[in-house]
């Protein structure tokens, strides 16, 4: 195995493109090193992207924020303006692993790992975030929602790297939230999760909504029926019941050591309901 520490994205892409063997991109390393340890991956080349200019920066852009691919979860959590704008996205990222893992793990890495249970991804999809991807022909933009293609699989090619994720500006009276279910209070992989992003009308009804579930299908699921249930309404009991049913209906989970399909289906709806109430309160709504 060789280790490379390029200083530009172009250099990084060139290294990846020119390597015939197995490659891994290293940001926080909290997935890659576990794979190395387990022997599930034996890379010929590791490309560490942390020294590439700009990849560790959070930069205001067009009323939103561009987040470098090597920014750690801890750094996201310490960025007051980002937390104020997209609290649900940040809380999703901050749920990944322990304090120690937060010191290293990145949002982009969580996305590129391709896990259906990734904590950062539902919030990003709910936020309509986009990723900037550097490749042999230059940068391209891609909706985060289009990146995961299946368990462990993404639309990022082997000679490409995600360099940043863009979280857009948002209208007034907006709020987002992310909740996951784990058996303990920390340190577990999500058994089911839900992100909700809302914008309210001036009368307190929900004008726009995106509801996204994690760990209940091969990729995150955008539940348009759930959003439809919310739009035009307040999150009263009847609306939430419709939302919960729509979410459970959208689940296509597996039984595994972390939970049964039945459990995931039931709990995903519960989480969506609870996340809706948090997002609604963050948007300034009151029941």
């Amino acid at each position: 195995m060789r280790y490379a520490r390029p200083e530009t994205a172009t250099e990084a892409v060139g290294l990846l493109a020119n390597e015939a063997g197995v490659t891994r991109v290293l940001a926080g390393g909290t997935d890659v090193l576990v794979q190395l340890r387990a022997g599930s991956v034996t890379p010929d080349l590791i490309v560490d992207i942390k020294r590439i200019a700009g990849l560790r920066a959070i930069t205001p852009e067009a009323g939103g924020f561009r987040i470098g691919a090597a920014v750690s979860g801890a750094e996201l959590g310490e960025h007051a303006a980002l937390c104020a704008l997209w609290p649900g996205v940040v809380e999703g990222c901050n749920l990944i692993g322990s304090t120690q893992v937060q010191g290293r793990a990145t949002m982009a890495g969580n996305l590129c790992n391709g896990s259906p249970a990734a904590d950062a991804v539902p919030g990003l999809v709910a936020a309509e975030a986009t990723a900037r991807i550097e490749g042999p022909t230059g940068p391209r933009e891609c909706a985060v929602a289009d990146i995961p293609t299946g368990p462990g699989k993404t639309a990022v090619q082997r000679d490409e790297i995600v360099t940043s994720i863009f979280l857009p500006a948002r209208p007034a009276r907006s709020g987002d939230a992310y909740l996951r279910f784990i058996p303990r209070t920390e340190m577990d992989i999500a058994v089911a999760s839900a992100a909700v992003n809302l914008t309210l009308a001036t009368d307190g009804t929900i004008a726009a909504a995106r509801v996204v579930l994690g760990a209940v299908a091969p990729t995150v699921v955008l539940v348009t029926e759930a959003a439809t249930a919310l739009i035009g309404n307040r999150p009263d009991a009847a609306t939430l019941a419709t939302l919960q049913a729509a979410c459970s209906a959208a689940c296509n989970p597996i039984d595994d050591k972390r939970g049964t399909a039945e459990f995931r289906t039931q709990v995903a709806g519960v989480l969506a309901k609870r996340a809706t109430l948090i997002a609604y309160a963050r948007a300034g709504g009151s029941l």
Binding site: L33, A74, R104
Partner: peptide, 27 residues
């Protein structure tokens, strides 16, 4: 554990708390 699940290898790297089992020496 060697997988970042127990914290017994905790150190700080540039002031940031990390699991040293999840950091390469070259980093």
């Amino acid at each position: 554990c060697g997988t970042g699940d127990c914290g017994a290898c905790s150190v700080t790297l540039d002031g940031r708390l990390v699991c040293s089992c999840l950091v390469l020496g070259v980093e």
